[in-house]
Simulated scan of single mutants.
Amino acid sequence: MEEGYPDLLDIFLADSEERLKVLRATDSAARLVETAHSFKGSSSNMGALKLTELCHQLEQRANDLPWAAIQQLVREIDGEFAGIRPLYEAERQRCPAKI
């Protein structure tokens, strides 16, 4: 796993940005559920427990929450990722470059 760890970090960071774009822009509950599920899985794999929980909440409740509550939850997810992103970026900088 050590060899692939830098790639895993790169993929997590890039995919998270894409998932956040979808969460911010979509007005489809089905797309919210799908994206939150995917984001939850990758966050869990990377040990981002609070982000995992927030994505789980969105996945479970996107069909039932009023739109304002969904938007608030997306903002919380966005804020949590903004808080942990520098940690993962720093971790990536500590990994040796590919040769």
Rank of each mutant, 00 (worst) to 15 (best):
E34K: 09
T35S: 12
T35A: 14
A36P: 07
H37G: 14
H37V: 14
F39G: 15
F39M: 13
K40L: 08
G41F: 05
G41T: 12
S42Y: 03
S42F: 06
S43R: 02
N45W: 04
N45C: 12
M46T: 13
M46W: 07
G47W: 05
A48G: 06
A48W: 00
K50A: 07
K50W: 06
K50F: 03
T52M: 05
E53W: 03
L54H: 10
H56P: 03
Q57S: 10
Q57V: 13
Q57C: 06
L58R: 09
E59K: 08
E59M: 06
E59L: 09
Q60L: 14
Q60P: 04
A62F: 00
A62D: 02
A62V: 02
A62K: 00
D64R: 01
D64C: 01
D64T: 13
L65G: 01
L65P: 02
P66E: 15
P66Y: 09
W67Q: 11
A68D: 06
A68V: 01
A69H: 07
I70G: 00
Q71D: 00
Q71H: 00
Q71P: 00
Q72E: 14
L73M: 10
L73I: 07
V74C: 01
V74F: 00
R75V: 07
R75S: 11
E76I: 03
E76L: 09
E76G: 01
E76D: 15
I77H: 04
I77V: 13
I77N: 09
I77E: 11
D78N: 06
D78Y: 00
G79T: 12
F81H: 05
F81E: 09
F81R: 04
F81L: 08
A82E: 15
G83M: 09
R85P: 07
